[in-house]
Design a protein around this nucleic acid. Structure first.
Lengths: 215, 215
DNA sequence: GTCTATACGATGATAGAC
DNA sequence: GTCTATCATCGTATAGAC
């Protein structure tokens, strides 16, 4: 097969990459299909052909990165749960939080594209239009369910609604960390190194959220 | 004085209100002066006349809500500091965090317009374009400086960079709380009441961040 | 002092000529 | 492909009406 164009064959992929970048930059509503297909250098109709609709494209953009990440986090949480069951005691709350947070931090620093995706997550959480947030929520639900149950097992004396709120506070700390890392902040109060690697960040955030959870 | 037009006399205010709403809805860059003046039903040139530029307008939108809030928070922190000094011991970390967080939560629920403003803050924190974030940062710097120093005094055994990171985690929890409150979440894991009043939220978040700080 | 109508230069996208 | 003319839209500036 003679490839008469460098863009042939990977049209689907190119659309996905362009959409991810533009969604992160200008938001979902602020990104037109023309902008996406223009950047991807494909025909406008290609989106509808490959993904059915703009919403269908959004789902695929999210699934591509989120499902593998969620699989990793799920395995880590399951491992903590399994180990606790074998030893006949409750899961260690620090290990539970580690199982969720460490893969997340590692994901962010894995590739520039992952960083773009994290930017997109951050934006969707604060967007008044909650179209995107709802899709994210749908895909993260099964994982969050397990995280919640495991956390409740780790902290059996705490009411479930308190655990749920504290998990939200933990997510807030994590989101904010993901957002500020990689940005310049020369004008901050004191020098705060926003270029820390995942291990250093983990060493900072885990004691904070673990103590908060056990409070 | 006969008011021949409902828009007369309050042009400055109307511009401010429209800008605040549209900035929260579509972002700073996504909002044109023509959109603002159109919604406010005033002439395009009025923005330049009253505020000098779009950036000048942005500053006033932020100052209008943030300066009074910051005054309140500053007074509360000063009071905690003063009381500690009188008693000859270090500030209580829980009281310090309360002094910052309680006025913030009360502000959010004070008026619908304050809610809109909080939405705007949330957006600017996750926007890849950091024009707005820089303005917010500039106006919150003096307060954050005092908060940071007071927190260091309350936790003298903790290295300053650790304190700074933990303050960021605290801000993350607070931002996330401000963002999710007031939104529907019928599809959440378990019922989480996002319509809690400031006092109930305070009772939830303060133990979490206090324990995290002291970890 | 306030507000309006209108114009200006810059920018970014589009489309056609080569 | 590359260049270029064109167009819409943006923030901004100004002259004059009330």
């Amino acid at each position: 097969m003679n490839s008469i164009s460098p863009t042939q064959g990977d049209t689907k992929q190119r659309i996905l990459d362009s959409a991810e970048y533009l969604f992160a930059q200008n938001g979902y509503r602020g990104t037109s299909l023309r902008a996406i297909t223009g950047k991807a250098d494909v025909n406008l109709a290609a989106v509808n052909y490959h993904y059915g609709s703009k919403d269908g494209l959004l789902e695929e953009v999210i699934k591509r990165r989120l499902l593998p990440l969620n699989r990793t986090r799920m395995q880590r949480i399951d491992a903590v749960r399994q180990k606790a069951r074998e030893r006949g005691n409750k899961p260690d709350i620090r290990a539970v939080l580690m199982a969720f947070i460490e893969p997340t931090l590692l994901f962010k620093e894995s590739t520039p594209e992952a960083g773009t995706f994290v930017t997109f997550i951050g934006r969707s959480m604060t967007d008044p239009d909650d179209t995107v947030r709802r899709v994210f929520q749908r895909f993260i639900m099964p994982l969050f369910q397990i995280l919640f149950e495991t956390t409740c097992e780790a902290l059996p004396r705490l009411p479930r609604d308190i655990v749920l709120w504290r998990l939200h506070f933990t997510l807030g700390s994590l989101f904010h960390t993901l957002n500020i890392c990689g940005k310049f902040s020369t004008d901050d109060i004191e020098y705060i190194n926003t270029r820390l690697d995942a291990d250093s960040l983990l060493a900072l955030i885990i004691p904070f959220v673990t103590a908060g959870m056990k409070a």
